[in-house]
Design a protein around this nucleic acid. Sequence first.
DNA 1: TGACATATATGACAGATGTCATAGATTAGG
DNA 2: CCTAATCTATGACATCTGTCATATATGTCA
Lengths: 124, 124
Amino acid sequence: MAKNKRPAMSPAETEVLRLVWQCQEATVQQVYDALPPTRKVAYVTVATLLRRLEEKGYLRHRVNGKAFVYTPAAKKEDVIRRTISDLVERLFGGNPVPLMQHLAQHSGMTDEDIERLKELAKKK
Amino acid sequence: MAKNKRPAMSPAETEVLRLVWQCQEATVQQVYDALPPTRKVAYVTVATLLRRLEEKGYLRHRVNGKAFVYTPAAKKEDVIRRTISDLVERLFGGNPVPLMQHLAQHSGMTDEDIERLKELAKKK
DNA sequence: TGACATATATGACAGATGTCATAGATTAGG
DNA sequence: CCTAATCTATGACATCTGTCATATATGTCA
């Protein structure tokens, strides 16, 4: 089993990667356009973030006309797993139950639902 | 409602804050000792992280003998909520369902359980 | 009270981050 | 084939991060 240690993504990079996933593949322009209006940043900034994501091994690109088309270079599932487990590690010492509880609490679940979740979690 | 925008914590800081929570209140030494063996870092480094957390408004300290005793300066619940919602924002564009699904998938839940979760999530 | 042990304060430093201005390459239209 | 429009490449720059070595302050106890 290959360890495949990619350098961690920064918050800004994470968001950009998500937008690429969303488009399946994307040019700088497409990511730029997909940015939520609450977070407008210069076109070149997006280009830089995409380039850095490629350096880190999360993306690759091919050329189409004069534009770069970026595509995922790592399995989305894996990236997500890593990101979440890092968070759980730092914030809860590795125990995912508090995270589930938190989510549960903020989505109208009953105590019973939570208990059930905890049970399930215990089973590995 | 006060916005109370504290600067975001870095990963290393997040872990240290968790250890303070764990001890309720803690000196540098206590946090240092509580570090998981996989992450041994110098005593002074811990001191620096605690100091920075205080600068950012997550901790405060009082003096006890020659030691500083750090205590939380922000509600743990709030900090956790913010941290998670930031992650959900960046990684899933603000939709918490994929996070629940992920957690579910990694704790032996059935598809039915997941459906139920999604329903619950939809209702707010 | 003086020396030792133990704390914190300083601040240094390389590398990461977030952001962009500007320069240089490329393509498409006229 | 030239020019305007559109891209990427460079690299700059202030901050933030992660980590410490050292200097300094302070409490302790023989």
